[in-house]
């Protein structure tokens, strides 16, 4: 079975800026994949190259085994893209937009699927409203709907939740999760790292057009982030205990790997006669991973 997405040695320059620098990436069918990176890292360029909106200078890209240039019709039929910009056609209603989009993909009678998408995205009541009349959040939903009219096996969402309220986020993710469970491959870019952490099975991090980290979310978290015991005490902490710990604002942060390390640690603090005023346990999070990876790269490029 061919990869859902295969990107091989793809480079792209805009003038003297290297937007993509020999990117290699493979996403398997059925994955929920996250593409992370700071602004300008090349995420959107990579998605655009995959969608045929941008032509790569070198390398090749394929969707479900179809090359995006030589076999573009099949590649595009297998791909649904939710663009980052909130774009819409002011001449049409929601339903007209979706019917027209279906037609572009060669689907004449698509009313049942359109109704289903509208229902799932909470758009049914807006079906006959003109696009201009919709709020930003509603327009965003229509963009998602437009990307799905042709039931693409691979769905790419470029920052779908930027500036979107909580309710829509939840509706959207519930729907995308269902699509993923039904077998659709999902690729997501977002700046909300907690979203990526909870949704994505695998994550690639992009910086200055290069992939600087690529692993399962779980392994990335283990590798770059640990649990932390944070506590506050009015008493002097024993020096051997706080070795390797960081202090800020009266709080000590002590990294640990397994939960059975916590009890002995607390016991020793108690034995030293320190009273604990406040205490919390921090889980590994993607934000820390992200920052470490990006800093690591910045340092590497300085050296």
């Amino acid at each position: 079975m061919s990869a859902a997405i295969r990107i091989q040695q793809v480079s792209k320059c805009f003038g003297s800026t290297k937007a993509l620098d020999k990117v290699d990436l493979e996403v398997e069918p059925g994955e929920f994949f996250g593409l992370l990176g700071p602004n300008g890292a090349g995420k959107t360029t990579l998605i655009s190259a995959l969608a045929g909106l941008v032509r790569a200078d070198s390398g090749s890209l394929s969707v479900m085994g179809h090359d995006v240039q030589s076999d573009y019709r099949a590649a595009r039929r297998h791909l649904g893209v939710v663009p980052q910009e909130l774009v819409f056609d002011p001449f049409f209603t929601v339903r007209e937009s979706l019917k027209i989009q279906s037609g572009y993909f060669g689907i004449g009678d698509n009313d049942r699927w359109i109704d289903e998408i509208l229902e799932n995205l909470g758009l049914t009541s807006k079906a006959n409203a003109n696009m201009r009349m919709l709020s930003g959040g509603m327009k965003r939903r229509v963009l998602v709907a437009q990307a799905l009219v042709h039931r693409p096996p691979v769905i790419v969402l470029d920052e779908p939740t930027a500036g979107v309220d909580v309710e829509l986020r939840q509706t959207l993710w519930a729907f995308i999760r269902r699509l993923n469970e039904a077998g659709h491959t999902i690729v997501l870019t977002t700046h909300y790292l907690e979203e990526a952490e909870s949704l994505c099975g695998r994550i690639a991090m992009l910086q200055s057009g290069r992939i600087v980290a690529l692993d399962t979310t779980a392994r990335l978290l283990r590798r770059f982030s640990t649990h932390t015991l944070r506590l506050r005490s009015r008493d002097e902490m024993p020096a051997d205990l706080v070795r390797g710990a960081a202090q800020s604002g009266g709080w000590w942060s002590m990294p640990f790997d397994a939960f059975d390390e916590v009890e002995p640690l607390l016991a020793r603090i108690r034995a030293a006669g320190c009273r604990i005023d406040d205490l919390e346990i921090g889980k590994p999070d993607l934000e820390e991973v992200f920052i470490r990876v990006m800093q690591g790269q910045a340092e590497a490029s300085v050296n």
Binding site: A51, G52, L53, Y72, V81, P90, F105, H150
Partner: peptide
Amino acid sequence: TGNIVFVLLPP
């Protein structure tokens, strides 16, 4: 307006 993508994305 950017909605040109609607005709550039399809086959």
